[in-house]
């Protein structure tokens, strides 16, 4: 069954795909899967895709999609459907006074996305992976660990044990290149954000902000409590897929000592 979706415009060259009637709330990778299916179609008019938690934003080229319509290249499983679509597009195009009667770029993009998603509904999607992230907790790598543990009423040891005991899930990649929004942080470990953010958080820093934990992929200003640091590169422009993670992946933090962190630093 093709997914039930609603589509609305985001300006004149992007649109937002929303899933309606989400029956399974645990399915965090549904939007990322849709993004992969659309990417695989390699459509000339499709510029970029942003999968988020319950939406998918598609950036398209209004001229390229009009060209595709006027060339008669729109893919369709049903001739009747495309004839109806064209009537719709001509109508909306005539209202807009654009496209030489061929229609509105937005309407064309919406129809084509619905068609691509319906056609790809049975296709295989990427399997979630489980990624281990080795972390040195505390010390200069985790300057806020001591205070955070105290706030949670735990020893540093118990705090680290709890943080490493959970399998987190990547809900989406956003905020900065390669940054994973992780779900699954135990409530006992929640921490308030810093009142005044640090000007400089080193790349690889592992932090907690509110009810979320995560890893800063790049050096940046930041307001999360820093509890450790990893050498794993969450974003690397030299890789084929620059982001290490994608929505649906599982992540485990593994405790290492400082010597191992330094050894990894020497290797990289």
């Amino acid at each position: 069954m093709p997914p039930q979706i609603a589509i609305e415009p985001l300006g004149d060259r992007a649109l937002v795909v929303k899933r309606v009637e989400v029956s399974d709330h645990s399915d965090t990778k549904a939007m990322a899967d849709m993004a992969e299916l659309l990417r695989a179609a390699e459509a000339s008019w499709l510029i970029d895709i942003i999968p988020a938690m319950d939406t998918l934003t598609v950036v398209y080229d209004p001229l390229a999609i009009l060209q595709r319509v006027s060339d008669g290249l729109m893919v369709s499983n049903a001739g009747e459907a495309i004839a109806e679509d064209r009537r719709t597009m001509r109508r909306s195009g005539a209202e807009a006074g654009i496209g030489d009667g061929w229609g509105s770029p937005y309407v064309a993009a919406e129809l084509e996305i619905r068609r691509l998603l319906a056609a790809a509904a049975g296709n295989r999607t990427l399997k979630p992976r489980t990624v281990e992230v080795p972390v040195h907790y505390g010390g200069i790598d985790g300057p806020d660990l001591q205070q955070a543990a105290k706030r949670s009423g735990l020893s540093e040891e118990a705090f680290i044990e709890l943080h490493t005991s959970v399998e987190y899930e990547v809900a989406m990649i956003g905020f900065m290149p390669g940054f994973p929004y992780l779900t699954g942080l135990p409530r006992e470990l929640f921490q308030p954000r810093l009142i005044s953010p640090r000007h400089r958080v080193p790349a690889g820093s592992v932090g907690i902000g509110g009810g979320q934990t995560g890893v800063y992929p790049l050096e940046t200003p930041g307001g999360w409590r820093l509890i450790g640091r990893t050498q794993v590169r969450l974003f690397d422009p030299a890789r084929n897929e620059p982001s290490l993670l994608r929505a649906g992946d599982k992540l485990r933090f593994v405790r290492i000592d400082r010597r191992d962190l330094e050894a990894e630093e020497d290797m990289s």
């Binding site: 990322a32 993004a35 990417r39 510029i47 970029d48 895709i49 942003i50 999968p51 934003t57 950036v59 990649i173 956003g174 905020f175 900065m176 290149p177 390669g178 940054f179 974003f235 897929e241 620059p242 982001s243 994608r246």
Partner: peptide, 11 residues
């Protein structure tokens, strides 16, 4: 560099 927003890289 459009095409990498899925990895949260700006255009």
């Amino acid at each position: 560099r459009a095409g990498w927003r899925k990895d949260a890289l700006a255009e």
